[in-house]
Design a protein around this nucleic acid. Structure first.
Lengths: 112, 112
DNA sequence: GCTGTTTGATCCATATGTAGAGCGTAAGGT
DNA sequence: ACCTTACGCTCTACATATGGATCAAACAGC
């Protein structure tokens, strides 16, 4: 990032990541797994795992999802099969939509 | 990462992130939003948004969630209120679990 | 058809996320 | 109570993700 950009996150995003981290931590402890152990399996450092569990917004999503998977936190409340289905469905959806978006004279409402 | 570490991700994680990216793209187009526009609102670059929609595993989770929120992709299939509830519940759970995990002599099965 | 816009891809520079090690503290098992 | 180990936190160095600019191709609207 060229200029030190202070990114701003919506409260929802922050809450969601924090929650995910909490779920991960809870799941890890329930499974009686050591932080080091999970980190090893995920191929990340213990420090990173700590940040993930703490809800740090600036971690690789890959690392976070990997950890979530390892400790058994299901994303999208779905299992792998469902994921694949979603994927296919998404593709179909995209096929129907225009590939490029054209603006005319709009004002869009930011709501969340 | 000190030494060029080639991180390895489970197929599940890769699928999940790809799916999320797809959902985001679909949602964005459905809402007739320009990539540039969403990027601006999320406070990220258009390039990063592209990578997110493509399912790049190495993006900040904060940026991904932010974009997801903006285009209306709900995480955890839950709204903000539910998230907060989950958060509280997670905390309670954690309070009951031991703060530290003690290993004895176990072998854990890696399965996924 | 033409025109202006969106997109996808690439390259570069730099801020920064991550690994690693090290520390003190707290906590679990015996 | 002891002793071991998991934890939380810090610091440093380095690989790299990100922002910004640019270009060509694809597309929507007229």
């Amino acid at each position: 990032m060229p200029k030190s950009i202070t990114r701003t996150y919506s409260r929802f995003s922050r809450t969601a990541v924090t929650l995910l981290g909490g779920l991960i931590r809870a799941a890890r402890k329930e499974r009686k797994l050591t932080a080091q152990e999970v980190a090893n399996r995920a191929g990340i450092s213990r420090g990173l795992l700590q940040r993930i569990e703490k809800g740090d917004l600036k971690c690789e999503i890959g690392a976070v999802f990997e950890v979530a998977t390892i400790v058994g936190v299901k994303l999208f409340d779905a299992d792998e099969t469902t994921l694949a289905t979603h994927l296919r469905h998404t593709d179909e959806k995209l096929a129907l939509l225009p590939k490029s978006i054209r603006k005319s004279t709009k004002v869009i409402d930011d709501d969340f």
